[in-house]
């Protein structure tokens, strides 16, 4: 059973590659989605982004590549594709604060383990010798200092990860930015697919977001958050002439 469960994401991943190469892009995207639902992987996200890009979904592609880079900051394909996509769509990368930038150096989960390990290393080096009636050595104290240092660094990175969770990317082309969270709300402006925004709060089916220049409401299905799993194939709309 465990073998089958482990083989399923790989099977969907392989199926997605085959469908993509056959030109069946929606089916390939669906296969990648299934693989991600079972076990998210950076390569799957990269391929999903490529498929979405080939399908014309620039916003969904950028979101997938950002998620791939969040999972593996050293994924060369994700980095290159993001640079390419932003050059094509003329949208900027999200503006990160310093601690958010620090959080991008390692995978998001690595920071939490690193901070935890640093904390308990420091605490352990300070307390365990006393418990075991050993004399504290200078090495133990150095290790405790190192642990606390790592913890502090990891703590800021973890704050950055939590802060980055509010970053989202516009999925649909010319997505309307509304003045009020209603479907009849006045349109302030339209957003470009792939544009990075920050979610401020939620009300019903709408997010209040802040872009580089303005703020307003946007429908939930038109925004993909950085750390939210895509639940359905991401679509874009043709702009009305």
């Amino acid at each position: 059973m465990a073998t089958g469960a482990a083989a399923a994401p790989d099977a969907f991943f392989t199926q997605g590659i085959a469908l993509n190469q056959a030109g069946q892009l929606p089916e390939a995207a669906a296969a990648y989605q299934k693989s991600l639902a079972i076990r998210p992987a950076a390569g799957t996200l990269v391929n999903l982004g490529i498929t979405e890009w080939q399908s014309g979904h620039a916003g969904a592609a950028i979101l997938a590549w950002e998620q791939a880079r969040g999972m593996d900051p050293f994924d060369a394909r994700a980095i290159a594709n993001l640079a390419f996509a932003r050059a094509v769509t003329q949208v900027n990368a999200p503006e990160l604060k310093w601690f958010e930038t620090a959080s991008t150096w390692l995978p998001a989960n690595a920071w939490v383990w690193l901070a935890g390990a640093g904390l308990w290393l420091g605490v352990g080096m300070l307390t365990l010798p006393a418990f075991f009636r050993r004399r504290k050595t200078s090495g133990q104290q150095a290790l405790a200092a190192l642990g606390f240092g790592i913890f502090l660094l990891g703590l800021t990175a973890n704050v950055g990860v939590v802060s980055r969770a509010e970053i989202g990317f516009v999925l649909k082309r010319n997505a309307p930015l509304l003045l009020t969270p209603t479907h009849t709300g006045e349109v302030i402006s339209t957003l470009t697919a792939g544009e990075a925004v920050r979610r401020v709060r939620v009300r019903g089916d709408y997010y209040f977001i802040r872009t580089a220049n303005e703020a307003g409401w946007i429908q939930r299905d038109q925004l993909g958050l950085l750390f939210s799993a895509p639940t359905a194939p991401l679509k874009t709309a043709r702009p009305s002439p």
Binding site: A41, P107, N109
Partner: peptide
């Protein structure tokens, strides 16, 4: 870029542990 040949680095969830 071309398609990734392997799933690569994986996680249990897209949502970070934090």
């Amino acid at each position: 870029s071309g398609l990734a040949p392997t799933p690569g680095h994986s996680m249990a969830s897209l949502t970070p542990l934090q």
